[in-house]
Amino acid sequence: MTQNLLSVQDLEISFRTAAGEVQVVRDLSFELAQGEVLGIVGESGCGKSITALSLLGLVPNPPGRVSKGRILLEGEDIVTASERRLRQIRGNDISMVFQEPMTSLNPVYSVGEQIAETARAHFNSSRSEAWERAIEMLQLVGIPSPERRAHEFPHQLSGGMRQRVMIAIALVCEPKVLIADEPTTALDVTVQAQIFDLFRDLQHKIGAAIILITHDIGVVAQMTDRVIVMYAGRKIEEGPVSAFITDPRHPYTRGLVNCIPRLSLDPSDDPEPLFEIPGVVPSPSDLSLPRCAFAPRCRNAFALCLEKSPPLLPVAEGRAAACWLETEKPG
């Protein structure tokens, strides 16, 4: 690996609350290579969506801000970039597909216009050129009779169609990085599969690196090359997807992987009881304690876990985990 496309270093994102400043993301570092598909996994509230927004300089401010660290896109720091420069990057170098296709498109403009204006914002193209480009994109994301559809409004399209339009908007400028934040959570299962097929197909055509944010382990297994697991604002495990599925190291990751029910056709198989991780995600304000954030829910926690938060340390080739069980054996 030479220079990475995107490099996040010691990222910390803070929110001002009534109880003082709270860090919703801390010590987050990761790299993204050209053409790579990186999965970021975690329960809701773990900081993955706000991390995605920070890559576009869109952390809602106030109350939030990036309080520490750097986000380097081909060596250029996004955290300190001017608003003007950020506008050039958004939608052009880095673009994003959001979770809610029903509400993420503006109801009063045609979908063609919403694609075309992105092209106009970044290229010096005329209205008709941009419109042509929009139709081309609709075709590319698999929307039938795009000339007609371009004139339609979001409410005339199904959820899956709208998400295709969102993808068309995200890809119209052929970005280097595409961030997809739970892109199929709001859709039917059959439509989910179609959307992921589309992602895979387009990745080959356009060659963008993808950051796929999800809580769905099945999606991660199918789609990604490498996985980062986040818990309570921290990265707690990282590694290639195959190792993540077969040999998770952090007890939380193990819990996540085991949460997937397995189908069996053999009637003699004892149905495994569905696994669940006890407890709930701690709220960020509970994280001021120096312990491992997962300790209260971990069935393997021991004394050390309550005293010190475990550092993220390499556990194998290309893998790291933040768990005392991996580094210190209980005494």
Binding site: L86, R87, R90, M96, F98, T103, P107, A121, I169
Partner: peptide, 26 residues
């Protein structure tokens, strides 16, 4: 605060376009 305003900003549109084209019309 609507999602489509976040989309408009994520597209890299100018502030003027976000406020007067996307927000005001709604």
């Amino acid at each position: 605060e609507a999602d489509y305003i976040r989309t408009a900003r994520a597209k890299g549109l100018s502030r003027r376009s976000v406020v007067y084209k996307h927000a005001l019309r709604n």
